[in-house]
């Protein structure tokens, strides 16, 4: 189980930690959600990495383990990640109240331009995770299908720049090294990789929602785009 494929049947297994399969599922769930929770707490409440780590560890211990939070998760009331973020919000606020020595919490939304108030860091972490998973599955599928060069071209021209790495290789170098016989062949390879990524991402979203309506690929990407806008706003105001 991972963040991108967590479904309600897996959550049901994780609820019963007294049996080995439940304990394993619970551990995998923690492993899957912990990075998203850290990112969410750190960015939404503008906390240091150390504070975010402390809060999330405490949340896992107090709420998820001691109070068996998963028992309270109810599929009919919406997405699990929405439930988790609501509970986490309450926990952070309580945590802060318990110590008067702590300076006031500054919500990210309060520090942002009104135009980006709708930013939800947990959604951002989720969007990033599903995209990263989709990229990983796209690479595997293309490579297994004998199209490793398609993936390499897509990676060099689309994926690396998204992770802010410099674009790898000129058109001339890439087309020669990857063995494309013409601009048509290179462009067709990119288009195939794009379609594969789109299909795989849609499949991941479908797995999560188990056939219910879900975000489109473009909607997921727009969530990340909002973070890029917010990042620029923060840099302007810092």
């Amino acid at each position: 189980m991972n963040f991108t494929s967590t479904d309600w049947s897996a959550l049901a297994i994780a609820r019963n930690r007294k049996v080995a399969s439940g304990a394993d599922a619970f551990a995998q769930l923690i492993e899957a959600y912990r990075p998203a929770m850290l990112f969410y707490v750190g960015s939404h409440f503008r906390l240091s990495v150390a504070d975010a780590e402390e809060i999330v560890q405490q949340f896992i211990l107090d709420r998820m383990i001691e109070k068996n939070l998963l028992e309270q998760a109810d599929r009919s009331r919406g997405k699990f990640r929405a439930f988790l973020v609501t509970t986490l919000n309450r926990f952070v606020i309580d945590w802060h109240r318990r110590s008067s020595a702590r300076p006031p919490l500054v919500l990210l939304s309060e520090a942002l331009d009104p135009a980006v108030e709708s930013l939800d860091p947990f959604d951002l972490a989720w969007a990033e995770t599903v995209i990263t998973e989709a990229l990983s599955r796209t690479a595997a599928e293309l490579e297994q299908g004998g199209r490793a060069n398609y993936w390499e071209l897509f990676h060099a021209r689309v994926v690396e720049p998204a992770y802010s790495q410099p674009m790898q290789g000129s058109y001339a170098e890439l087309s020669e090294r990857l063995g494309f016989e013409s601009p048509r062949a290179a462009s067709n390879a990119l288009a195939t990789a794009k379609r594969t990524f789109e299909r795989v991402l849609d499949q991941i979203l479908d797995e999560q929602e188990q056939g219910r309506p879900h975000e489109s690929v473009v909607e997921v990407l727009k969530i990340l785009s909002r973070r890029a806008t917010a990042g620029r706003t923060l840099r302007r105001t810092d």
């Binding site: 990075p35 850290l38 990112f39 750190g42 960015s43 503008r46 906390l47 240091s48 990495v49 504070d51 975010a52 702590r102 300076p103 500054v106 990033e128 995209i131 990263t132 021209r157 689309v158 994926v159 720049p161 998204a162 992770y163 802010s164 794009k194 789109e198 690929v217 473009v218 990407l221 727009k222 990340l224 785009s225 973070r227 890029a228 990042g231 810092d238």
Partner: peptide, 23 residues
Amino acid sequence: MASQTDNPYPRIVNPQPLIDLFS
């Protein structure tokens, strides 16, 4: 409590190439 300026977890910082691809 220090402001968080760097996210320690690898992330997509420039989604524009992906957005452009689907636009």
